[in-house]
Each structure stands twice: as structure tokens, then as C-alpha cells.
């Protein structure tokens, strides 16, 4: 094999963006998209020499907090954890989670406003923020976690040495470690009627995992599982394209992002 897994994933991710939200690849690559994104971010990380550096895709997730309810949350979490064979340990010590619910106070810790009666009591879905400037990628000693050209922060379960530096670095608590063998637990769950998704690998103990924005589904031209589970709540698209579905929504709705003061530039938006 002349192409390793990583290169394949990167290539697969980019080429299959074609299928996203019914948009053609040519649309994502439209002139001006890159420049618009740079101007919008306004962080000055755009260097002169990069002007002709080709397309920029930055995948992002929008979560309509106002449209969420218990039922939808359950469906989203279940879909994601089924699709990725996430074991349900049932105890916080060994727990693995890719997407889960928490309250305003715990989600926006540093900007919590106790008089914000609108946000208080609303359900928030937490997941990996796929930061544009990810601290986990910075600290990983083996590049087991890395940022793809489309902005997805991916995790290579076969390279991870399990040092858990990324867990210390992630300010969002998005990462889980396989303290025990997940396959053993999945077997127990399967005996109780759980189904295994044969299209996605299970993990071994001793490695870190987290939400992957469903790279494996994007590669097949599908939407992420959570979007499919609740298409009126979750919106997925290219933040770098000013005409994308997500940018259109962001122009109309008030949005929040977690812990912006840390400079990580998260790609998950909460719509209010």
C-alpha cells in the first residue's frame, strides 16, 4: 500500500465534501471563500504568501438549543454512540462519551450569568469543538490527534500511546480515555440486546477517543449521525464559505461558542 491510513482519510474527507448539504465541490472552492473566511476571523493568521494557497474548508456544527428537547437529545446521543460503538459503562469513572447533555452553568463556566433566565435551564449538547486552534493537537507527542485540511480534529486510535496529554489540554472536557477494554463491555451490552455497528471499528483499551464529526460518514457522502438524527436541531457545513447553510443561519441567529477567551476558535456553535 503506497498510501497510509492518514493520507487516505485526508483525501477521502476532502473529495467527499462534494456530498455535503447538496453542495458541489466547485461551490466550496468558489473564489473569495478563503479570503472571506480570513477577513471574518480577523486574527491576522493569514500570510501574504498563502493568498493562492488553495481552498479552505472549515467544517462546523450548529446546535439549535431552542429546538432541543429530551426526546431529541436521547435520539442524538443514542445515534452517535451506536454509530461509533461507544460503550455505555454506566459509571463516571470509566465513562466514554462523544456527545452528551449538560446545563448552561457547566457549559459556559467562565461567562456564566446567573441572571440570564433565558439560557438557564436550557439543554446544551456537548461534543468535541473541532477547534481551529486545537490545544490537543499541539500537545500530542505522536500526532495521533491531528487537524485535517477540512478542519476536523481527528484521532488515530492506532497511533495513540495513551499518555492523556490531550485530555489535560482540552479545555472542553471533550475527550475520553478507554480505562478498561471497551470490547469486553460491548460484548456484555450485546448480550443484553445492544447492536454493534460493523461499519465502524471498536477501540482497544488504553487509547483516547472523541467525536470525529463522522468522518467515516462524510467519506460516504452522508451527513453526520447527529444531523441525520435531528435535522431541525443540528446543522453541519462549511464555515469558510460565506454562502454555506451554516453561514446563512449564523447571519440570522444569535450564536454562542464555548470559552472563546482561550483562543481555541471552536467550530461548534449554540444557536439561541
Amino acid at each position: 500500500m503506497s498510501m497510509d491510513r492518514r493520507k487516505f482519510l485526508k483525501a477521502a474527507g476532502l473529495t467527499t465534501l462534494v456530498g455535503l448539504g447538496g453542495k458541489g465541490l466547485f461551490e466550496l472552492l468558489k473564489p473569495g471563500a478563503v479570503e472571506a473566511e480570513m477577513a471574518e476571523e480577523g486574527h491576522g493568521h493569514h500570510e501574504e504568501g498563502e493568498k493562492n494557497a488553495g481552498p479552505k474548508v472549515r467544517l462546523a456544527m450548529l446546535i439549535d438549543v431552542m429546538a432541543l428537547n429530551k426526546e431529541k437529545i436521547e435520539k442524538i446521543v443514542h445515534t452517535c454512540h451506536y454509530l461509533h460503538n461507544v460503550p455505555n459503562w454506566g459509571d463516571p469513572k470509566n465513562e466514554i462519551k462523544w456527545i452528551w447533555e449538560d446545563e448552561y452553568e457547566h457549559v459556559f463556566t467562565d461567562s456564566y450569568n446567573e441572571y440570564n433566565h433565558i439560557l438557564e435551564g436550557l439543554p446544551f449538547l456537548l461534543m468535541c469543538n473541532h477547534c481551529d486552534n486545537p490545544p490537543c493537537v499541539r500537545v500530542c507527542p505522536v500526532q495521533a490527534t491531528f487537524k485535517r485540511p477540512d478542519g476536523i480534529v481527528a484521532q488515530d486510535y492506532h497511533r495513540c500511546i495513551g499518555c492523556r496529554f490531550c485530555m489535560a489540554a482540552c479545555p472542553y472536557g471533550s475527550r475520553s480515555f478507554n480505562w478498561l477494554d471497551p470490547r469486553v463491555h460491548l460484548k456484555i451490552e450485546m448480550a443484553e440486546g445492544r447492536k454493534l455497528n460493523k461499519r465502524f471499528p471498536t477501540r482497544m483499551r488504553g487509547v483516547v477517543e472523541k467525536c470525529n464529526f463522522c468522518v467515516e460518514r462524510l467519506a460516504e457522502g452522508k451527513q453526520p449521525g447527529c444531523v441525520e438524527a435531528a435535522p431541525d436541531v443540528m446543522f453541519f457545513g462549511n464555515l469558510a464559505d460565506p454562502n454555506s447553510n451554516v453561514r446563512k443561519i449564523l447571519r440570522e441567529r444569535i450564536s454562542l461558542r464555548r470559552k472563546l477567551e482561550l483562543g481555541t476558535r471552536p467550530s461548534v456553535f449554540y444557536l439561541i
Binding site: 500530542c140 507527542p141 505522536v142 497511533r159 495513551g162 499518555c163 480515555f177 488504553g206 487509547v207
Partner: peptide, 17 residues
Amino acid sequence: VDIGQPMRMLNVLLHPT
């Protein structure tokens, strides 16, 4: 003893970061 996959430890040399 702290790392989850000690047999992959040499990845630190194999993929210097």
C-alpha cells in the same frame, strides 16, 4: 506505567513532534 499503550511508546521517536 502511566501510558495506556506502552508497547507503542517508540511512536514518540517514530513521529517526532
